[in-house]
Design a protein around this nucleic acid. Structure first.
Length: 257
DNA sequence: TAGGCCATCTGGTCCT
DNA sequence: AGGACCAGATGGCCTA
């Protein structure tokens, strides 16, 4: 990897090395030098190294594969592996794009491990929010007595759209209670998040246990009135905590292999 | 300078 | 046999 000529603050997941599909047309400088050195050593030492190279400990028939063939094969394999990793990185970038995290030239890219951990927590939070919404909607449509009495006193509120007039505070509270919120945690949000450096991405351990999911708190739910979430910053807000695994629908979710 | 993150190479293993 | 996948090793870049 010579130079990252990508964006200013984020390392490009795909190096700027031009990978040609045709095997053999690509060499990183380092590997080329290494390869040349090894070849030279091989030539000087005569033999001994080539057998050990691809056969492990096995006693391969000493039908010594042509050095060029070995080299071509090695280059092909390397190229495939490189392509595989590039594809993986592309997928990772795709995941980053949909993550509720700040994107921009001034914000450093989430690391891979952080992306995965954040994605996991994000999914858990979305699932939980969905369940909570279902409950709330069920409450509204199920226990219609309260709704009807309210609509009688406020004719402008039609039963057709009760959910639109739901106060979002219950949702906020329910979400907070769902994740074990404490007022101190909410208070902490302001101090900690504003103190965080905008260029410092969250550490993996931080995300693992205090995953920021600011996207949930953006406009759709208008939950940011009392909790300000700053893009690109780790959020200690209780809303951003990982969900307890007691959520019934989430038991099967895990990061295990 | 240490530590984190990353890309790449490489050998092994498994699958088709 | 060839390809995909994986994990370890290595070295570069960047930041605190």
């Amino acid at each position: 990897m010579d130079s990252d000529s990508g964006s200013v603050c984020s390392r490009s997941s795909s190096p700027d090395l031009v990978v040609d599909d045709s095997a053999g047309s690509f060499f990183s400088n380092k590997m080329f030098q290494t390869y040349c050195r090894e070849n030279r050593e091989d030539n000087e030492a005569g033999q001994g190294r080539t057998e050990r190279c691809s056969g492990g400990g096995k006693t391969k028939t000493r039908s010594e594969p042509n050095k060029d063939e070995v080299q071509d094969l090695r280059l092909k394999v390397n190229s495939r592996e490189r392509k595989r990793m590039h594809d993986l990185n592309q997928a990772m970038d795709g995941l980053r794009e949909v993550m509720p995290y700040a994107h921009g030239p001034s914000v450093r890219k989430l690391s891979k491990i952080s992306t995965l951990l954040l994605a996991r927590n994000y999914i858990l939070m979305l699932s939980s929010s969905l369940e909570e919404m279902k409950k709330l909607v069920g409450d509204v449509y199920g226990g219609s007595a309260a709704v009807q009495s309210r609509t009688a006193s406020h004719p402008a509120i039609t039963p057709a759209a009760p959910a639109a007039h739901l106060s979002l505070h219950p949702l906020t509270h329910s979400l907070h209670s769902l994740v074990g919120s404490t007022p101190s945690a909410a208070l902490q949000h302001h101090t900690t998040s504003t103190a965080a450096a905008p260029h410092s991405p969250p550490s993996a351990s931080f995300l693992g246990f205090h995953a920021p999911v600011q996207g949930l708190l953006k406009d759709p739910l208008h939950l940011t009135s009392s909790y300000r979430h700053f893009p690109g910053m780790p959020c200690p807000c209780s809303l951003c905590q990982p969900l307890p695994t007691t959520t019934s629908t989430l038991h099967s979710l895990s990061m295990t292999k």
